[in-house]
Simulated assay, not measured.
Amino acid sequence: MLTLQAELALGLGRRDQAEQMLIAAAGAASDPVAVWGRAARLAARVDARHYQLLALRQSLMHVPARDAAPLRLALMVRALRDANDAWAVRESDVGREALLRSVESYLEAEPPARRWQARDDLAAALSEYAWVDLHAALLIRAALWPEPALQRQHPAAAARLERALGGAAEPLSSSPLAPAELAAGLAVLAGPGDAAPELPAAALGFVPVDQLQPVRLELARHHADPQQRLRSAIAVATTGEPAARVEALRLLLAELARRDPVRRDVVVDLLLAGLDAAGERSEAMVPGEDELLALVFGLVREPARAPREIKGQ
């Protein structure tokens, strides 16, 4: 009941009453974290700045440090959104300096191994909001990228943020903004009969390995550099899905048969010995005996000669 009264007061614009009722609701609740979390979500939806700050700060006091990262990120995003309409941030040197220092403090509080990810997450979170003008965009850029090199280290997040700020959608490269989009774009380039595409740095950095398997197979088939063909085939053969591993091994053995038959024999011996694929699960690199025999002897099964399905088996 107290939580509902706080929300009604917030809807009526009675900020002080809403905050007092919220504090009372959390104090009377058996699970105050749930109350503060509900309040933070509501405040974010209706853009109630002070109500949201209260809820997020109180939530931080009730959760263990290992669970605090999303709350700290939400607090930082809320502070940076002041670039849209806060007079002190937009018009005074002191306010601007405080905003920049808040980002520095936020990142310095993270372990060194997590600071790159924390900056990337912050840029991605800020890209979800609208920014009113060039002044706000300049403040956000100064806070996130105090040095140009930092922006270059976050190509996908920086491109997404630039689109939200109203700048160039792809300021650093021609790569799409999300890993799935990037993988899909590369797959289009890897159509039958086309030249194999190159893998940009953004793809290697941000696209999951499994989404790059079709592109790597095309590299193994058609790339002009023999070493690149071998590297691509080996990458899929060791980390790909079973069907992709078999195709990559077929390409690898065919390439070695042309260039280095001795090395091909070594690879075949390893496969016959039961070489495992890389991954969390322990499974053979070649999933079945039929596939293994076809690879070893260079056989290609004709579709018309595939074993017929027997009902009941």
Results as ranks from 00 to 15, higher is better:
M1K: 13
E7A: 05
A9S: 15
G11K: 11
G13V: 02
R15C: 06
D16K: 06
M21N: 06
M21G: 06
L22A: 00
A24M: 07
A24G: 07
G27S: 04
S30M: 08
W36C: 05
A40S: 12
R41E: 08
A43Q: 07
R45W: 09
V46M: 07
D47V: 04
A48N: 05
Y51W: 11
L54P: 02
A55D: 09
L56P: 00
R57G: 14
R57L: 13
S59F: 03
S59C: 08
L60C: 09
M61S: 13
P64T: 04
A65D: 06
R66L: 05
L71E: 02
L71Y: 14
R72A: 07
L73I: 01
M76L: 01
R78A: 15
R81Q: 07
D82Q: 10
D85F: 04
A86P: 02
W87A: 11
R90L: 07
E97Y: 08
E97H: 10
E97A: 15
A98I: 04
L100D: 05
E104N: 08
S105F: 09
E108Y: 11
P111V: 09
R114F: 06
R114Y: 04
D120H: 06
D121G: 02
Y129M: 02
D133K: 10
L134E: 07
A137G: 05
A137H: 01
R141S: 09
A142L: 01
A142S: 06
A143Y: 00
L144V: 08
P146C: 13
P148I: 14
A149W: 13
L150A: 12
Q151G: 03
Q153W: 14
P155G: 03
A158Q: 04
A158I: 01
R160D: 13
E162V: 04
G166E: 11
L172M: 06
S175F: 03
P176K: 03
A187P: 11
G193H: 15
D194Y: 14
A195F: 07
E198M: 06
P200E: 02
P200R: 02
V207S: 03
P208R: 13
D210K: 14
Q213I: 08
V215D: 00
L217G: 08
L217C: 07
E218I: 02
E218P: 13
E218V: 09
A224T: 13
A224V: 10
P226H: 04
Q228L: 02
Q228K: 10
R231N: 10
R231D: 12
R231W: 08
S232C: 14
A237P: 01
T238H: 13
T238Y: 10
T239F: 05
T239N: 12
R245W: 02
V246P: 00
L249G: 00
L249S: 12
A254R: 10
A254D: 04
A257K: 12
R258Y: 09
R258E: 08
D260F: 06
D260W: 10
V262L: 09
R264V: 01
D265E: 12
V267I: 10
V267G: 03
L272P: 03
A273C: 06
A273R: 12
M285L: 13
V286F: 00
P287D: 14
P287T: 14
E289M: 11
D290C: 11
L292F: 03
L292N: 07
L292D: 03
L293M: 14
L295I: 05
L295F: 08
G298I: 05
V300R: 12
V300C: 06
R301L: 07
E302F: 09
E302I: 01
R305K: 13
A306T: 15
A306Q: 15
R308T: 12
R308K: 12
I310Y: 15
Q313Y: 14
